[in-house]
Design a protein around this nucleic acid. Structure first.
Length: 937
RNA sequence: GCCCGGGUGGUGAAAUUGGUAGACACGCAGGACUUAAAAUCCUGUGGAUAGUAAUAUCUGUGCGGGUUCGACUCCCGCCCCGGGCACCA
């Protein structure tokens, strides 16, 4: 007796997991004549809460694709691992003294067992763990390569391209020519030096210069310091002036920090987006983050009575050089170096106090006061180089020191911020554009519109032609150059934390120096507590006897994104202890064909990974310019929280529809003690001690809870554990149900209501193979045309849907197929066997069991996905809807190869059409073969 | 404010990309089996009107207009929801 019952499911699924494991079905070889296909999931951070039903959504999809591609004859790499360094384990360590390694290992093993319950086809022998020394050895090694390189822009026509090269080539150049003739992407060097000077520099001075060129470098930078977390955060970890994790306040501080010169790659990161198949929103986000703007940089010479100052000029960056005749004032950032120098005596007091206030205002305050206009006149004037007009210079904090030159030429007639500023301080506005949308005072204002006026040689031109012409003039006048600016800043690469990769760096006479490659990895030392030292050093400052030949190590650790910026390479060759990824593995797998994960990583992980991939390519270690060819963002499964309403100041709860009559505070109730919307009052009282004496105001004898859709989280008591679903329905049902829920990319709340439908389908499918007594039985008869048609229609749709990543419709397709076969009472092997193969990517356990019952001894994954045959789908006739004036009024059958004219004749002569046309000849008749016949009267 | 997505039954959603809107599933209603319930199976199910009925007609994809023989799909204007960016010159 084998009904597809709960017990039977448990038996089947357990059995196959064991067999897969023992037989090694999912081991992947790097040496195969088959074409490769690499399917990657964004690896999880193993949190203490374990997996909830939302996590596997993307993993299920990628597993379906992996299994499908294997059946299609590809050698598929489908690995899984853990992004194991991170803050929660460390916070937990600070509170409990428990070593983060211990917590992390425990969490990893929970995750692994939860994942294997779902029947994923991962090759676990390729598991990576970013916190394992054998892994982070190579993270450190990559850091060393980046430290030892610079970005050369020479020899490339487009200045913004170029590539990373070993630092030795730069030093060789310095020795011969100083830093002249170098086209490097670097911090503006304060000095230009000759070869002679270079040779005269001390080691410290030389290193100081090299740091300006290295791709991984140490520099004094403004950082986002989060005192509560005791660490710096990158820009993408700060949201609205508070930390993304925990929501603690963040302030701007200047600190000596490790950085990554990602800005050197801005142009390649941008143009590379056109070569990869990624969702539009992610590409947009990366484009915005990179923030390219093309314009001009030019000098406005300072006008002053003081003769010694006449060298000074204010350099501005503008994308709208065409509007230069509309400049009526100039604004520089409070932090601008010229503020000191140019402010006149009369204005000094006002300027100093303004600058003081602006500097002390935190980023957060500055953001929240975006709309407030403030600024102060410096007393200084510059000369507009185009028309010689005298232009007053103001200081205002709406101009940012960190972007462009920290100074703007204000054109109030075409820029809304400049306009607001001009209005507020009563500065003049000169219109330079004329057209229906060119008036800034009007609602329909459009800055890029109209024709130039009041602009001398530009008059009459369109704005974009004027930009071109004005830019030419700037260059011929030698007052400036065309320039491209990027909003993207270099990435901070250091944390004042314990649980991260140590830097392979020590300090020798104040010079940051790399350890020998043979001394990698630099392992995390044991320390007695995981918090900063009393003197404010990072936790690693507590380590005893931790040094490199007597020299002190760098005490910060690498940020969370270090380990995840190259992990897909490690999966290709995970055991290699000579290289981070061997050449031959690299050649075979090359890049990721399909990457599935959440869009929250759009400007973090996904950008850093592209950056490292490009840098490694420049240095000759990898072949791929882009790591992830196709990206899919799976949506998030949200939780449905249940709420009870407590009357303020009492222990009485009112039912949902009565809550408006009282002052109430909603509290989250554990969803396991709510049935539908009805609260189980006894279990509620037993749930928490403080609720034992609760009283209730009921409606219709029941307590009804409210609901809210929010993030699935322990904190809201709305977590659904996949293990629970697996134990009552089985992994196959859960897998199919999660796919059935809707399109992969869409976020949706979890509800278990529909899961029965999927379970019933699987049971019915199972029953096709079993007789009324539950004994396995298939017929060896030939299939009928009709049965073959059902089979091939299903195969065609399912294959097509999987390739389109439209898994919800493929599940529906299987249901339709099974319903049809059921009503035909078809139990023929020739029909059922191909369906088992096609269904197996979705329901691998069930598939494998039926495959075995059908008499196969080899793994199902070695089978071939059945090829559908169009000829079975061909109809010789088609039932045409006959529409009259757009409305379907009749249906008629015609052979598919029947000529249009003949169809027209028959349709016109038909009774149905005669009735509607009342005998009159129609205006027009349109026959779309295989679709519709439309009669227009 | 700017840039992306998206609005289809009671619910989750389909729609071969301009060709019978609502497939498939949940829920609901009715029926069969059963002493009864659960489970299972069958039937119906966007709305309105007419009819004992089979059925027929109208209406219907956020709102208003347009293109077309034909629009959920394309174009213009508006409303609402979700996501991202936010003084970037």
């Amino acid at each position: 007796m084998a009904d597809y019952s709960k017990e039977e499911i448990k038996r089947i699924e357990g059995k196959w997991r064991t067999i897969w494991d023992q037989r090694g079905d999912y081991r992947v070889s790097n040496d195969s004549p088959k074409p490769k296909y690499y399917v990657l999931d964004m690896f999880p951070y193993p949190s203490g809460a374990g997996l909830h039903v939302g996590h596997p959504l993307g993993y299920i999809a990628s597993d379906i694709v992996s299994r499908y591609k294997r059946l299609k004859g590809f050698n598929v790499l489908h690995p899984m691992g853990f992004d194991a360094f991170g803050l929660p384990a460390e916070q937990y360590a600070i509170q409990t003294g428990q070593h983060p390694r211990v917590t992390t290992e425990k969490n990893i093993s929970t995750y692994r067992s939860q994942l294997s319950n779902l029947g994923f086809s991962y090759d676990w022998s390729r598991k990576v763990d970013t916190s394992d020394p054998s892994y982070y050895k190579w993270t450190q090694w990559i850091f060393m390569q980046l430290f030892n390189s610079w970005y050369n822009r020479a020899g490339v026509s487009d200045l913004n391209h170029g590539k990373a090269e070993p630092i030795a080539t730069l030093i060789a150049h310095f020795e011969k020519h100083g830093n002249q003739g170098i086209q490097a992407y670097c911090d503006e060097p304060a000095v230009v030096f000759s070869a002679k000077e270079w040779q005269s520099f001390t080691a410290v001075q030389r290193e100081d210069i090299l740091q300006r060129y290295r791709i991984a470098y140490l520099a004094e930078t403004m950082v986002n310091w989060c005192a509560a977390l005791g660490t710096v955060l990158s820009n993408d970890e700060v949201k609205d002036g508070v930390s993304e994790r925990g929501g603690y306040p963040v302030e701007r501080l200047k600190m000596l920090q490790w950085n990554m010169r990602i800005s050197a790659y801005a142009e390649r990161l941008l143009s590379g987006l056109d070569t990869i198949d990624w969702p539009e929103p992610v590409r947009e986000m990366q484009k915005n983050w990179i923030g390219k703007s093309v314009g001009c940089e030019l000098d406005f010479p300072l006008l002053t009575e003081n003769a010694s100052d006449d060298q000074l000029a204010v350099r501005v960056f503008t994308t709208r050089i065409d509007t230069i005749y509309g400049v009526t004032f100039m604004v520089i950032a409070p932090e601008h170096e010229l503020v000191e120098k140019i402010t006149t005596k009369d204005q000094r007091a006002a300027v100093t106090s303004y600058v003081e206030i602006a500097k002390n205002r935190s980023e957060r305050e500055r953001m929240s006061e975006v709309k407030r206009i403030s600024g102060v006149f410096t007393g200084a004037y510059v000369k507009n180089p185009f028309n010689g007009e005298k232009v007053p210079v103001w200081v205002a904090d709406y101009v940012l020191a960190g972007y462009g030159t920290g100074a703007v030429m204000a054109v109030p007639c075409s820029d809304t911020r400049d306009y607001a500023f001009a209005k507020h301080f009563d500065l003049p506005v000169i219109p330079v554009l004329e057209g229906p949308h060119a008036d800034i005072t009007k609602e329909n204002f459009e800055p890029k519109s109209g024709k130039m006026i009041n602009s001398d040689f530009l008059n009459g031109l369109l704005w974009n032609d004027a930009i071109e012409k004005a830019a030419e003039r700037v260059e011929t006048m030698k007052i400036g150059v065309r320039r491209v600016n990027y909003r993207m800043r270099d990435a901070i690469f250091g944390r004042q934390r314990y649980w991260g990769e140590p830097f392979p760096v020590y300090f020798k006479d104040g010079i940051p120096t790399l350890v020998n490659e043979s001394d990698l990895p630099v392992t995390l030392p044991e320390i007695d507590a995981y918090k900063p030292t009393e003197t404010g050093e990072p936790p690693l400052g507590r380590a005893k006897d931790w040094n490199y030949n007597g020299y002190t190590y760098e005490l910060t650790t690498m940020p969370g994104w270090a380990g995840s910026s190259w992990y897909w390479f490690r999966y290709m060759d995970p055991q290699n202890d000579k290289e981070f990824c061997g050449k031959s593995a690299q050649k075979y797998w090359r890049d990721v064909d399909l990457y599935i994960g959440g869009s929250e990583h759009a400007t973090g992980h996904l950008l850093y990974s592209r950056f490292w991939c490009k840098a490694l390519k420049d240095l000759g270690y990898v072949d791929a310019e882009e790591p992830f060819l196709k990206l899919i963002n799976q949506g998030h499964i949200q939780g449905v929280s249940k709420l009870a309403y407590r009357i303020n100041g009492t222990n009485t709860f009112v039912s949902y529809n009565l809550r408006k009559e009282y002052e109430v505070t909603p509290i989250h109730v554990d969803i396991s003690i709510v049935n539908g919307d009805v609260l189980d009052i006894e279990r509620f009282k037993a749930w928490r001690d403080d609720l034992r004496d609760s009283e209730f105001k009921l409606e219709a004898g029941q307590y009804i809870c409210g609901s809210e859709v929010e993030k699935m989280s322990k904190r809201y008591y709305n977590v659904v554990n996949p293990d629970d679903i697996v134990s009552s329905y089985g992994a196959d049902t859960l897998r199919m149900y999660e796919m059935f829920l809707g399109p992969l990319e869409i976020s949706k709340p979890w509800n278990t209501h529909g899961i029965d439908g999927v379970y019933k389908f699987l049971r019915r499918f199972w029953n096709l193979f079993h007789d009324a007594q539950g004994v396995f039985r298939v017929s060896e008869e030939m299939a009928t045309q009709q049965e073959l048609k059902v089979l091939h229609k299903t195969l065609k749709k399912v294959a097509h849907d999987i390739e389109q990543f439209s898994f919800n419709t493929s599940v529906s397709e299987f249901m339709i197929c099974s319903n049809e076969l059921n009503s035909m009472k078809c139990n023929k092997r020739v029909i059922l066997e191909p369906l088992v193969i096609a269904l197996a990517p979705f329901a691998p356990h069930l598939g494998e069991e039926l495959w075995q019952l059908l008499g196969h001894t080899t793994p199902l994954l070695d089978a071939t996905f059945p090829i559908y045959d169009e000829s079975y789908l061909k109809e010789n006739a088609f039932e045409y809807p006959i529409s009259i004036n757009g409305k379907v009024r009749a249906k008629m059958n015609f052979a598919l190869d029947m000529p249009r004219e003949d169809i027209e004749k028959v349709v016109l002569a038909s009774e149905a059409v005669q009735k509607w046309t009342e005998g009159k000849a129609p205006k027009k008749i349109i026959v779309v073969p295989g679709r519709i016949v439309n009669v227009v009267i």
